[in-house]
Design a protein around this nucleic acid. Structure first.
Lengths: 337, 337
DNA sequence: TTGTACGCGTTATCAC
DNA sequence: GTGATAACGCGTACAA
């Protein structure tokens, strides 16, 4: 790795001049054209690459955004990560991606590593699990970091003092459930999610509220995991028990796709036999014409990246963009409606 | 951010001692129990976090693995990225994720940024596009880096001199096509992929070879993109033209799922009307019982991470693990067979 | 317009 | 066992 000094020597100038030409202050601190040219060619021939480590050390901050995702294989988080990466790149930032498996201890470990790398911001993509062991320690460490000047952004409900750019989970489920009811369905079930996961619990609240308002009994099923497989298994069980409802509100698109997979493969008609909808608006549901609450996931990532890159302070936190119902072909009015 | 010196002062020891206690050589360079304890408590109370930047600067290398993916939303790459992240973490490494959209220029930019951060290794997850502008420049820069000691690993066919841990794409498609033929299908089509993309071209070769061996005419369709939507559109067109084959070998699972989505939603029976299979073995196909060539994607990521973290040299490159046919419920013998 | 010199936080080499 | 101190590569006052 060629260093700045080597470049300077080859160009017969001082390191200061070389530095001014290659990194930054070429305008605020003028350098003659000739020297500029010779420095640049020297850098080119030597294949000079500035040391981000040295720069970070000197400037007390590095252009790094840390991303802590619950599961990078889940499209929900992958979309956020993508938005983060794209927007960060625009500002010359890079994203460091860490997986945490929804485990507070792992989150804490990753958080620490990210801080060690002087990340100027750290983004939590997933929500937390209420009362999970390690949550308190994580919160404590996050709060210390925040006070120390590290920008921390939560893109989902979190129990620590960070900047929040969060979608109203209660409202998403509430609105979606109301849509199902407006179609004339009465036996509307809510399916999937993780017990204790804030996002899940909030969506259930939204669903429950909508059901209560319609004076109907809520019915929450399959509260275990939230992937395609669990959607398939849960609906298979409902069918086996003869308890298939009129409509199913799924906690996310993954579960909904699992439901569709089972129903189609076993001869049921969607939406004739049952209406199905998800929450998220991720790519996975698109091809199936899934009705879903489209969430601005990529945009959430972008906002977080921009907030960090532009060194936002607590006062200029962007609001989460609105979500929107996307009516597909997996929902239809109830036959008796 | 508390520094080592602050910790040392609080503990009334020298920075040297503090360093020995907190980072590394506590054994090779003994420190008394008492001092160790006082240093640790001092670090704790100050919330000391070592500066990775300073360490990287001093040690001339940082525990960073750069990952350049073509599209993080594609499960194919997401699985690799996940394997990389998990294995890297085991060795105390972190992964920096960069998206490149299959654009050589973007790849080059990201590659450079990764080098600036002194990544000890950089992994390319996707294959290249033959003759794409910018490919030569990228290759040149990669080769410079490799000679400079940076470990570069390609997990897909690439035109530069890097370590390769690659699956035999020709064989995957060949084997899968042969399986379709063994079921008695004669009109077997190959669907999807990017024109010029090495992985696509190689799979087509495998497919063609198998068809030629059976003295059948190959039929490649939908060579445009390789996501679910393109699979849906392509098969819809086939149906509209009355050209639905006996069996479809898809370039990846995404395309295959798109095909299934269309067929199911429009009343076709899989595998009764047509057999469908994919390549990849990603999660997306699992819930549909998709027949697919299961590729060791996560494992590929792990191997790359381990190779870099253990500072492998050119002589101890691990071989790609074997792939395997997973027979699901989307393929069946031909009715006339 | 260019050069000199210091320090960012850490580790490693020497001395005690 | 422990403590000074010199680098690592860079940016930037301050001089010239």
């Amino acid at each position: 790795m060629a260093t700045l000094r080597e470049v300077a020597e080859l160009a017969s100038v001082s390191v200061a001049t070389a530095s001014r030409v290659l990194n930054g202050s070429a305008q605020s601190h003028p350098v003659s054209r000739k020297v500029q040219a010779s420095v640049r060619t020297a850098a080119e021939t030597l294949g000079y690459t500035p040391s981000a480590a040295a720069q970070a050390l000197k400037q007390q901050r590095s252009k790094i955004i840390g991303v802590i995702a619950s599961d990078i294989l889940d499209p929900y988080f992958a979309e956020m990560a993508r938005g983060l990466e794209i927007e960060a790149a625009k500002f010359g930032y890079i994203t460091i991606l860490a997986n945490a498996n929804r485990d507070p201890d792992q989150e804490r470990t990753k958080f620490r590593v990210l801080r060690e790398h002087q990340a100027s911001g750290i983004v939590f993509c997933g929500s937390d699990i209420e009362g999970a062991p390690g949550t308190a320690e994580l919160a404590r460490e996050v709060n210390v970091a925040v006070r120390g000047g590290t920008r921390v952004v939560a893109l989902a409900p979190r129990g620590f003092d960070s900047t929040r750019i969060v979608i109203d989970n209660v409202a998403t489920a509430h609105e979606l459930t109301r849509y199902m009811l407006s179609l004339g369905h009465r036996k509307v079930a809510f399916m999937g999610g993780l017990p204790g996961l804030s996002a899940t619990e909030q969506r259930i609240v939204g669903y429950r509220n909508a059901m209560f308002e319609a004076q109907l009994r809520p019915n929450v099923v399959g509260l275990s995991t939230m992937n395609q497989e669990s959607g398939r298994e849960t609906v298979a069980q409902l069918v086996a028990d003869g308890l298939l409802p009129d409509a199913i509100v799924c906690t996310n698109d993954e579960v909904a796709v699992g439901v569709l997979a089972y129903l189609w493969s076993s001869g049921y008609k969607v939406p004739d036999d049952v209406s199905v909808a998800g929450i998220g608006g991720t790519r996975g549901g698109l091809v199936f014409g899934l009705t879903t609450m489209t969430l601005p996931l990529v945009e959430l990532g972008r906002l977080a990246a921009r907030y960090i890159a532009t060194e936002g302070n607590g006062s200029d936190v962007p609001a989460a963009p609105p979500f929107e119902l996307r009516v597909g072909s997996t929902t239809a009015p109830h036959p008796n409606a």
